[in-house]
C-alpha cells in the first residue's frame, strides 16, 4: 500500500544550497547516517528475499523431502508458464485488476467530489465515514461481505429474491462469476477511499480561476468537469490508477477468506502462496513468486515508460 507521492520533496532550505565542499561532504555523511537505517531495512526485507526466491526457483525442492533437493534450472518456470492453472490465475488476476480499478475510479471520483465541495459542517462526518473502509482490516471486510452473501448466513438472497437467478437457493460462492462479483465488491469497498483521497488531492490542484472563467463563458457543470477539471487532474488520476492497479494485482486476502481459490477464483498471489506455503513446494512456489514479481515490475515499467506516469514526481 502506498500513498500519493506526486508532491515530491522539492524546495530545500536555503542553507542546504551553500556550495561549500566540506559542508557538502559533511551533509552527505549525515544524510546517509540518518537515512541509512531505513534504507537498509527496506532493502534487507525485500531485496534479499526476492534474490533468495530467484535462487530457490531454480531447484526442485520440497520442504518435507529435504533430501531430494536438486538443481533443475528453468524447469519450474516451464512448468508454471505452461500450466492452465497459472494461466487461469493470471487471467482472473488481470480481470479483477481491470474491473476493480475502473469501478473504483468512478466511485472514488464521486466520493472525492463530495468531500471537496461538501459544506464545512459535514466535512468531518463525510471524511470519517470514508476513512472507515480505509482503516478497516481487509480480512474483516472479506468476512463482512462473505457472511452477507453466503447461502447459510447471508441475507442478500432474501433481499434480492425478486431478481432473476437470485433466490434462497443461490450459492454465490458456487461458481466463478458470482464468487468474483462478491470478491471484487469487497475489494472495491475497502480500497475506494484510497483512490478517492488521491483524487481529492488532484481536485485541490485544479486551478479555481479556470473553472470560474469557464463558468463565466457559460459552460455547464458537465462541460466544466470534462473540459477543465479532468484535464488538470490527469496526473493525479494516472498516479491513482497505477498505484491501485499494482495493489489490485496483488489481491490475496479477500480471495483467501471467501473461496480460497475454489471454482476458478484463484489469483496469482494465492497460487504462489498455496504452492510454496500450503504444498511446501519451495522451488515451484518460488518460481510463481518470481513471476508475480516480474508482472508487477512490468506494470510499473509500462506505466512509467509508456504512459509517462511520474510516480516519483518532479525531477531527480
Amino acid at each position: 500500500m502506498s500513498t500519493t507521492v506526486e508532491q515530491r520533496p522539492a524546495h530545500k532550505g536555503k542553507e542546504a544550497k551553500a556550495p561549500v565542499s566540506d559542508r557538502t561532504r559533511g551533509e552527505r555523511r549525515l544524510g546517509w547516517m540518518l537515512a541509512g537505517p531505513a534504507f537498509v531495512v527496506m532493502l534487507l526485507v525485500t531485496m534479499y528475499p526476492i534474490v533468495q526466491a530467484l535462487w530457490d526457483s531454480l531447484y526442485s525442492y520440497r520442504l518435507t523431502a529435504p533430501d531430494d533437493r536438486s538443481f533443475v534450472f528453468l524447469q519450474n518456470y516451464m512448468t508454471v508458464l505452461g500450466d492452465p492453472v497459472f494461466l487461469s490465475a493470471l487471467l482472473v488476476t488481470l480481470f479483477i485488476t481491470v474491473v476493480t480499478v475502473a469501478v473504483e475510479l468512478v466511485i472514488g471520483f464521486a466520493l472525492a467530489l463530495v468531500m471537496n465541495s461538501v459544506l464545512k459542517t459535514f466535512r468531518g462526518v463525510v471524511r470519517t465515514a470514508i476513512l472507515v473502509p480505509y482503516g478497516i482490516i481487509t480480512v474483516v471486510s472479506a468476512f463482512a461481505w462473505f457472511y452477507a452473501f453466503d447461502i447459510n448466513t447471508g441475507y442478500v438472497n432474501t433481499w434480492f429474491e425478486w431478481l432473476p437467478i437470485i433466490g434462497p437457493d443461490f450459492n454465490w460462492f458456487g461458481q466463478q462469476w458470482s464468487a468474483l462479483f462478491v470478491i471484487m465488491a469487497s475489494e472495491i469497498w475497502k480500497t475506494t477511499p484510497f483512490i478517492s483521497l488521491l483524487l481529492l488531492a488532484g481536485l485541490a490542484q485544479v486551478p479555481g480561476e479556470l473553472n470560474e472563467a469557464a463558468k463565466v463563458d457559460g459552460a455547464g457543470w458537465w462541460q466544466r468537469m470534462y473540459k477543465v477539471t479532468l484535464p488538470s487532474m490527469k496526473a493525479a488520476i494516472m498516479v491513482a490508477v497505477v498505484f491501485r492497479a499494482l495493489d489490485a494485482f496483488r489481491i490475496f486476502d479477500n480471495v483467501f477468506i471467501m473461496t480460497n481459490g475454489q471454482y476458478g477464483t484463484e489469483t496469482l498471489s494465492l497460487l504462489a502462496y498455496r504452492t510454496s506455503i500450503t504444498r511446501l513446494e519451495i522451488g515451484l512456489g518460488s518460481a510463481v513468486s518470481v513471476i508475480l514479481f516480474l508482472c508487477v515490475l512490468l506494470i510499473a515499467f509500462v506505466a512509467i515508460k509508456v504512459f509517462k506516469v511520474d510516480l516519483a514526481g518532479g525531477k531527480g
Binding site: 453466503d150 447461502i151 447459510n152 434462497p168 437457493d169 443461490f170 450459492n171 460462492f173 458456487g174 461458481q175 475454489q262 471454482y263
Partner: peptide, 10 residues
C-alpha cells in the same frame, strides 16, 4: 443448493 460449499457441519 449449497452443495458446492457444503462441509460436514453445513
Amino acid at each position: 443448493p449449497g452443495i458446492s460449499s457444503q462441509d460436514e457441519s453445513a
